[in-house]
């Protein structure tokens, strides 16, 4: 299977080329956010205030890394379960978010928003945080430092390995994969 190499920020042409099941290597800047940061981002949008980073074409990685040891860039940094962000993701997608990286399936509302506004949901390997950390070349807290592991970080990644779960054509790898191997 060919591996798609993409660079952030993502444009509509790149998004359209990605299909459910594709293996993708992401390079460039991605932003971390999980439960608490999502709540704040959406509250900021509701208040029509400025977000800590420009969402246009960006990718959010659902992760709360473990602390880096001295000399390390980041600690363990695998994906967290995505459905907890379902309450917030449609709002961020409507505001320009193009990609999300997590694990586990998404709600119908999120999938609809992805089709409507052209965004993609990727999965990274859950529980492989030590391995995944190797593709993170730089990490910097840019917002909500008081949230600790849940702060928003700007990550510079190189060939960050993910799989396309939901594309803009309505396909879902969790569904397809299960059907293929179910007996």
């Amino acid at each position: 299977m060919t591996v798609h190499k993409i660079t952030t920020p993502l444009d509509d042409k790149t998004i359209a080329s990605l299909k459910t099941g594709n293996e993708v290597l992401i390079s460039g800047i991605i932003y971390t956010a999980r439960d608490a940061a999502h709540k704040r981002l959406v509250e900021t949008l509701e208040k029509k205030e400025k977000l800590p980073f420009d969402l246009q074409g960006q990718v959010i990685y659902f992760v709360g890394p473990s602390p880096a040891r001295p000399g390390q860039i980041i600690g363990s940094a695998g994906p967290t379960t995505s459905y907890r962000m379902d309450a917030y993701s449609p709002r961020l997608i409507a505001a320009g978010l193009k990609g999300m990286i997590g694990k586990g399936s998404r709600s119908t509302a999120v999938k609809k928003a992805m089709q409507q506004y052209k965004a993609v949901y990727f999965a990274a390997t859950g529980g492989a945080g030590a391995l995944i950390a190797r593709s993170i070349k730089k990490a910097e807290v840019i917002a909500y430092p008081e949230l600790g592991a849940e702060a928003i970080r700007r990550l510079e990644v190189e060939d960050f390995p993910v799989t396309v779960i939901n594309d803009i054509y309505g396909d879902d790898l969790y569904h397809k994969g299960k059907i293929q191997y179910r007996r």
Binding site: P65, S66, R69, G75, S76, G78, A128, G129, A130, L131
Partner: peptide, 17 residues
């Protein structure tokens, strides 16, 4: 592979400790 890295580099196997 993740287990091997965690063992040798003393990085948590998973960020959710």
């Amino acid at each position: 592979e993740n287990v091997r890295i965690a063992n040798t580099e003393k990085i948590p196997l998973c960020q959710d400790t």
